[in-house]
Amino acid sequence: MAETVNITVNGTQYSKEVEGRTLLVHFLRDTLGLTGTHVGCDTSSCGACTVHIDGKAVKSCSMLAAQADGKSITTIEGMANGDELHPLQESFREKHGLQCGFCTPGMIMTAADLLNHNPNPSETEIREALEGNICRCTGYHNIVEAIKDAAEKMAVTA
């Protein structure tokens, strides 16, 4: 049975028909073409699909598109302000916080959630906040450095 959902994604409003079983991540990727949100597992473990719903990080593989009706979603494609990168995006690049890039969008979205409520996290807090995101390339060292760096940048601009 098709459902009509009204969802705001990265500031644009969409009204689309979806199947009841359509996962949010597939709605974003297949219906809206926002392929920056990735699918890395089928057990809600890896966090590659992390997006923000009403400002909070969630795993878009673990909810139905229909559940997001009426919500405002931000994906990795919505993080930069035009050509101006989000500080986390800048820091991931500067600190080499990514290699293959596949987990990166989810990492950045999770990190953004962390910095939203903890602007000055310790190394331990950063590592704990990333427990729902798996990276197989970096050993996390430079991801931690990138998030610390972004926190400093954001403190200066705040």
Binding site: I76, E77, G101
Partner: peptide, 23 residues
Amino acid sequence: QSVKRVEDKRFITGQGRYTDDIV
């Protein structure tokens, strides 16, 4: 030199193009 990676721009903005992204 630790030159920053030129490929990163597309990955950090969600513009990477992996096979499953191709339609």
